[in-house]
Design a protein around this nucleic acid. Structure first.
Lengths: 195, 195, 195, 195
DNA sequence: GATGAATGAGCGTTCATTCAT
DNA sequence: GATGAATGAACGCTCATTCAT
């Protein structure tokens, strides 16, 4: 964590504070204290409190998207790609629980700017799933009667909800491999016993 | 909507206002105006602003839980039960978009009381899913290697995320039947083409 | 001072505080304390700090204008009218030193709203002088080569500056009658010895 | 504007900024930018923001006083002296509108230091008028019943108010000669038609 | 001397909550 | 019970001033 410049220190602090208290209950002075800077310093790097939140989204989610795109690029099998996506998402969220919390909670705000962000940059992330499904359908691995536009929502929602519980410190009921395997089984093979 | 007493009028108004502005941006005076009562009147029925939110959860989600339990009680086939659950959830959320919004956003607050609620009463709702899966496994319809504790999260998460998009007024891409069928296909049969 | 409603109490307090500290150095809490209301109460009656200042101008100067118009209405002799104007201005300012201070200092702010006010409502006050001069010229009492547009400024400026010194508590060098007589002599008869 | 050292550059910039925004709305960074120096540099030449304002008064008004004293020294006729004073004041203010604005507005602040300055150095300027009147009375040109202590205020106030309007860029209603002549007529000969 | 990033005290304003009517 | 005017604690943000480079 050395050599982080002020901007990054503030972003990191904000993620921690937003995760703990939520955006609205977070105080600028909380973030400043956490970042070990003066309150006023924050305004040298961000326009206002809300701008900090948006920056967290843009910068941090951007990094995750870039990483996962990289991870997926070296794989061609759609089934494996879905597994990679799930594994990557889960581990990325687990590694940065605070960011996960912020994404899961604050990215749902009804605020117009947040909505817009969710509908653009974050959309890119979710669309990675529908692209994989499309590929699978093209190569004949996945059923053609599945609509990628709905399936991507279903998969992301499942992943997101499982993540919430799985990343919570208290939950040690399931291992990473177990969790991924379960999601994989459900989505790839379904619940029904094959006749 | 006839014969609503003040308490219910305030709850209804709060759902509308919370949905539109979010809990933190909602003003007590907004709710009072919407409920056509004086600001102070609200405090005759609720302890504080937060208490209104909790009451929304407890009373409104309680109603939905009761309804769905009733719907499920007359059905024995686990597969059909899952379908009923999905259909019921989607239609209930569509019918009351504002409540859906409040549940999806505000029930995720990091506040301790909200967390506790989510972990108790709301849990009951989600546990309906794991119970169905358990039943299916007992009766030999569902695979025994699926862990209901994870699967219930996956199904609820999928349902929740699909709901968010599907209930949004602008989205007319998919019909109710289409959406339910897709979820059913994915979860029951999986993505993979049966060999 | 009894039976003043909150609005008037705040205006009175603001005049006192603005006079003592100046608009920019005045704190809302100073005004609130002086008016014996809570800080927040001020915002039930005024939009913001600046709105208080503008209200002081509009309401208090409005009263003074109305009074002086009444005083002038019963007199026809232009010379006497000028004397009445001067006497009225001096006594009104002396009676309400704080308001005088606020008018003399804050009404000169470069702020657009203040400038506009000075150019409209306050203008009405100053124009009373040019109207009197016009009358005097019509009736042949005043020299026709005097331009009322410049003279009104000269007279008002003189009156204003004399007022500043004369109303200051410390200055007891000149009586009211003396001061008015001097202004009258200077403006009516000039400095020069009549040949 | 060549070869101004930092001190003078800052003073010039401050006059411009104070004139445009007023002292309280002016930012140190505004002045620094206008002077093309760093914010911190200002504190190498001035103790604080207020000190800049006081320096503007002391240095710039000092120059004007010196100039006018020089102009008056070569004239002996009191009437001519008054005319010179008015002409000098008007042209000096017109030449440096920004300084005029600062003097007219900021020199009225209720702050003790400003008051003191107005009562000392600035007083010297105004007293030039009473000295002229005294001379005129000694030489028998001016009426002895005029009290120089009041008349100096009246003349200065008139001059100041006329200046405000006359220097404003938009006002082209009156020429310099017209304006001076009018003031001269009013004060020297009065409004009344000589019988 | 010059810089400008950093500081943190200070204030206008908001709004949940109270309580006299 | 119902009202809504009044309260005052709380906080985002600004900006004069400092000081390490």
């Amino acid at each position: 964590m050395k050599n982080l410049d002020k901007h990054d220190k503030i972003i990191s602090a904000a993620i921690k504070v937003f995760a703990k208290k939520g955006f609205f209950n977070a105080r600028i002075s909380d973030i400043a204290k956490e970042a070990k800077v003066a309150d006023g310093t924050i305004y040298l790097y961000f326009n206002n409190k809300f701008d900090i939140l948006v920056s967290v989204f843009e910068e941090e989610i951007g990094k995750i998207i870039a990483q996962i795109e990289l991870s997926l690029s070296s794989e061609t099998d759609p089934q494996k790609k879905l597994e990679i996506f799930a594994r990557h998402h889960l581990t990325a969220m687990k590694r940065n629980k605070n960011l996960a919390e912020v994404i899961q909670i604050e990215l749902r705000q009804s605020n117009k700017v947040v909505r817009d962000y969710r509908n653009t940059a974050f959309q890119r992330y979710i669309n990675l799933i529908s692209e994989i499904i499309n590929e699978g359908q093209s190569t004949g691995v996945f059923r053609k009667d599945i609509m990628p536009g709905i399936a991507k929502r279903a998969l992301f929602g499942a992943l997101d909800e499982v993540t919430r519980v799985w990343t919570s410190a208290s939950d040690t009921s399931y291992t990473l491999e177990e969790t991924i395997d379960q999601l994989y089984q459900i989505f790839i093979s379904g619940l029904k016993i094959r006749s």
